[in-house]
Design a protein around this nucleic acid. Structure first.
Length: 931
RNA sequence: GCCGUCUUAGCUCAGUGGUAGAGCACUCGCUUCACACGCGAUAGGUCACAAGUUCAAAUCUUGUAGACGGCACCA
């Protein structure tokens, strides 16, 4: 069979995914083994506003590698996909669209119409990322795709809210919250980021004390908030202000008098020792206000402008304009002491970067203390979840939990889960699953529903179990989701009402460190609370893929790398295996050259297969061809040994989530062992009887030995492709299907009824009994011999076309091994003859070397040898060995080492020393012989 | 301010109490009938710095410097 000379990823990516998907290969139901153990992963739902970025590609690769690996191992495997409604993001998109297309504000069209348009937007644009996931080759079960605003999931949200409210874990109250004046909504602490401003100002204002001619100076970074001051506080032990406490301030720019109070909160050492207190606009001041029963004067509107309470001169003025105006007016009054430059860190909205305003507001909160204790208990008693890498995430997670504050869950948006709370005219609150229920509770009174929606993370916090159909209803009955896949029978699908029981806890959660608190912790708590189960056993925390400049990829830096572009340029498989080659949890600077490595690797796999196929006449994949290898040649024994060792080690590495180790093992097995050595060693055998024929004459037919050799190499290749499949699904499927002898019979036991596909074959477990230490050592000798001769060729500038003779002197064992592999050594070292003997009998004009085991090699180079160069070469080798000898001597002459180091270690070193001494001795003799 | 991570070959990164590794780049040589996205052969590192523990430290401890991240505070 002849195939293209180079691998074309696009060709391979074209058809397989659709076939896999429509054949139901991604569904757990494909597994026919009733006793199969489940393996489940739930995807961190990407935002419907999002498009695939490198972080997704990395996480999806890891999830898909695990899913495909486990599926091949025979687990009943489910990777569940879904998307998040992304409250603020979608709301903003729709607002923008409305403004651009119709020059309207949301209030112009009303809530119902706005929500309708948001759904339209979601239907239209919300599938970008799911389509991109298909390109990635993600083996997710699309028939179980979930959206956080699906009916069932929305019902789950309401159930959880109602239950938590009834238990007193959800409450509504006035608190200082983070307010984004642009999005006009409250934000949780976690949605607020910090930005350092170098050009900040600290303004010192003088407040006149009533009944005296004195003033008290207070400092502030937000002068406009003085309009909402309701006190000035000093430390009770501060001698400077002792006589002032109890007196009043005539608050400038207002007609109000405010008290001077004493409170421990004030640090006498800091600033002027006097603090203006604005209870409605600062969390600390709020607390002080509560202690002293101060009025809470709200001076700002929801868009960041000042309100009437700030005074008529300021009403409607933007907060930053008001700030300037306050300073100007103080200056005019002669009450401005000074303005200092001050580096300040400001809280900003995570999404729009607007400066967040602390503001007193009536919001819904979740009390976190009991849930926090549940999560801490899970970690302390069961070590759940297990983080990979464990350091530092376990510690950071635990520390965060210990300091957890209540969670603000209401948002002033229209897109999302509207809070299931209703109010009557008297302001009574009724929390219920539906409006009808609420009305019933209210004794039939007319009610109005709370206008706010819930934090997006509230619904994602339920994701671990809401995705499996939990709605909080006792009987859990719900209609089957309509299936879109078409080529398999609905009857084959098990009753999904058991999904929750079957797949929860999931096995592993793969996510980034930025949402450990926002999402992971809340899922752990809410899953424990509502289903009384662990959400997942393990958490893999991926690192960050940084831009070429070493900084996180972002639009503003314009240093992003689009995964789709990489797919187009290097292929999906190359991108995937590259991403898997990054150490778990490590940050990495993006570099196209590294993907190129794996693009080349893909091509190497393609071409190795091409070679095997070109020389496969009469042969087919046959696993029995690798059994009973006592009679095999050394290269065969060795590659089978290496194959099994690699399989065992790859499985071990994957089990530990060391994907990069697995990749490295596979890369080197395939390229170094299989291609560079095995194929080259058996090439003559494989190709005899294949075109182009020697002398242009075709032999009658390939004989039995050739056929066996071809069968073996095809079979080894087939096993290697299986191991590579989780990383490179398209390439391996494309090639596997081309191998002769492929059939349904080769599928794993659990998938017998499926059509042939590599994704449902068994992942090679590796057979420890097939590891052959003797073959490994003997092969090392052959390789060593070839490498020494190649070195001589290269250093002595021997033309590749020049054939030479190799003389080897060594013990009987060495000679026997070399003799058995004479043909291969001759081929790879480009030699005509090999002379084996107890001693060397060669002319002086020979280049020499010594094998690790001590055997001597000589290559006669009559007329070709450059004696100076040869002396240099020998001296170089001696010098290299000498460095090692020095170090070993140093260690062995240390009495402490010999006494205290493990005996085995000492023995090993002594043996190595003898070996080196023998080699040096031989090389020195050779050098001296040159004169 | 507190906590944490990182610092290894020119570049990007693995590794780890007991002989320093890979890919790319560099140098030299190859159209050897799978592959130039290739083949062969070299070269290149006192593993940031300092002290300590140990027979033995790049690896463990502490400190220093630099880079980065998280949390808190910010009148």
């Amino acid at each position: 069979m002849e195939i293209a000379k180079a691998f074309d990823p696009k060709e391979a990516e074209k058809s397989h995914y659709q076939r896999w998907e429509t054949s139901g290969f991604f569904m757990p139901e494909i597994n026919e083994d009733p006793n199969a153990v489940k393996y489940s992963i739930v995807i961190p739902p990407p935002n419907v506003t999002g498009s695939l970025h490198m972080g997704h590609a990395l996480q999806h690769t890891i999830m898909d590698v695990l899913t495909r690996w486990k599926r091949m191992q025979g687990y009943r495997t489910l990777w569940l996909p879904g998307t998040d409604h992304a409250g603020i993001s979608v709301q903003r998109k729709v607002v923008e669209q409305l403004k651009k297309d119709e020059h309207k504000k949301p209030t112009d069209i009303g809530r119902d119409e706005f929500v309708r348009r948001a759904w339209t937007w979601k239907e239209q644009y919300g599938n970008t990322i799911t389509e991109q996931m298909r390109r990635e080759g993600a083996s997710v079960d699309w028939s179980r795709h979930r959206f956080t605003m699906d009916d069932d999931l929305s019902k789950a949200v309401r159930s959880v809210f109602v239950t938590l409210f009834d238990q007193g874990w959800i409450y509504k109250g006035l608190r200082i919250v983070n307010w984004c004046p642009k999005d006009k909504t409250v934000l949780s602490d976690l949605e607020v980021k910090e930005e350092t401003k170098k050009d900040g100002k600290l303004t010192y204002l003088k407040y006149p004390v009533v009944g005296t001619d004195r003033t008290i100076t207070v400092a502030t970074t937000r002068p406009e908030t003085m309009l909402g001051d309701t006190a000035v506080a000093v430390n009770p032990r501060d001698e400077r202000y002792k006589d002032m406490v109890g007196k009043a301030i005539a608050l400038p720019l207002t007609d109000r008098e405010i008290p001077i109070i004493a409170d421990e909160y004030v640090d006498a050492e800091f600033g002027t020792g006097a603090v203006k207190i604005t209870p409605a606009h600062d969390p600390n001041d709020y607390q002080v206000g509560l202690r002293h029963d101060l009025p809470q004067l709200l001076i700002m509107n929801d868009d960041g402008t000042m309100n009437a309470a700030a005074g008529t001169e300021f009403d409607g003025l933007d907060r930053f304009k008001a700030r300037e105006k306050v300073v100007e007016m103080f200056e005019e009054l002669g009450l401005l002491e000074r303005v200092e430059d001050y580096e300040i860190t400001l809280p900003v909205c995570e999404r729009c970067k607007t400066v967040v305003e602390p503001i007193l507001s009536d919001q819904w909160f979740v009390k976190m203390d009991e849930m926090r204790d549940m999560a801490l208990d899970l970690m302390r008693t069961e070590g759940v979840p297990h983080f990979s890498p464990q350091v530092p995430h376990e510690k950071v997670y635990t520390a965060w939990l210990e300091n957890l504050k209540d969670w603000t869950i209401s948002r002033q948006l229209w897109w999302g889960h509207q809070i299931p709370a209703w109010y009557d005219d008297e302001g009574n609150t009724y929390v219920a699953m539906t409006a009808e229920e609420a009305k019933e509770k209210a004794g039939g009174r007319e009610l109005t529903q709370d206008q706010d929606v819930l934090d997006t993370w509230f619904s994602s916090g339920l994701w671990a179990f809401s995705t499996f159909g939990w709605t909080g209803e006792v009987d859990g009955k719900k209609p089957e989701k309509e299936l879109t896949a078409n080529s398999y029978q609905l009857s084959a699908i098990s009753d999904r009402r058991t999904d929750l029981e079957t797949f929860l806890p999931t096995d592993v959660l793969v996510t980034g460190r930025d949402i450990i608190f926002l999402w992971v912790s809340r899922m752990i708590m809410l899953t424990k609370k509502f289903v009384d189960k662990k959400a997942f056993e393990d958490v893999i925390v991926t690192g960050t893929v940084l831009g070429k400049d070493g900084k996180p990829m972002s639009k503003s830096r314009n240093n992003g790398v689009d995964p789709i572009e990489m797919f187009d340029k290097f292929g999906v498989d190359a991108t995937r295996i590259y991403l898997a080659s990054i150490a778990t949890g490590a940050d990495i600077k993006w570099n196209d050259l590294l993907i190129e490595t794996y693009r080349n690797f893909a091509n190497k796999i393609w071409n190795a297969t091409r070679f095997c196929l070109m020389n496969s006449d009469g042969a087919k994949v046959d696993h029995s061809s690798l059994v009973g290898h006592d009679t095999f040649s050394l290269p065969d024994k060795w590659i089978i040994s290496r194959l099994n060792r690699t399989a065992i080690d790859v499985n071990k590495a994957l089990a530990k989530y060391e994907f990069h180790t697995a990749v490295s093992l596979l890369y080197h097995f395939f390229w170094d062992d299989f291609c560079d050595w095995y194929i080259e060693l058996v090439k003559d055998e494989i190709t005899s009887g294949s075109p182009p024929y020697e002398g242009g004459v075709a032999p009658a037919s390939a004989d039995g030995v050739v056929l066996l050799a071809r069968t073996r190499i095809l079979t080894i290749l087939e096993i290697a492709l299986r191991m590579l499949h989780p990383f490179m699904p398209y390439l391996t499927e494309e090639l596997w299907l081309k191998l002769p002898g492929i059939s349904k019979e080769m599928l794993a036991a659990a998938y017998k009824s499926a059509e042939p596909t590599i994704m449902l074959t068994a992942f090679p477990p590796g057979d420890a009994s097939a590891i052959d230490e003797t073959a490994d050592a003997e092969m090392q000798l052959v390789i060593d011999t070839i490498k020494r001769v190649r070195n001589i060729r290269s250093e002595m500038n021997i033309k590749p076309s020049d054939r030479l003779a190799i003389h080897v002197a060594g013990n009987a064992e060495t000679l026997a091994i070399l003799s058995a592999n004479e043909a291969q050594i001759k081929k790879l070292a480009r030699a005509d003859t090999i002379v084996l003997g107890e001693t060397l009998d060669v002319p002086k004009a020979s280049a020499k070397a010594v094998l690790t085991g001590g055997a001597e090699i000589a290559v006669p180079l009559e007329g070709l040898i450059d004696f100076d160069k040869e002396r240099e070469r020998l001296a170089g080798q001696i010098a290299k060995l000498d460095v090692e000898l020095q170090r070993i001597d140093g260690q062995l002459s240390n009495a402490n080492f010999v006494e205290r180091a493990p005996e085995e270690k000492v023995k090993e070193l002594r043996e190595r020393k003898e070996q080196i001494e023998r080699q040096i001795q031989t090389l020195t003799q050779n050098l001296e012989a040159l004169g």
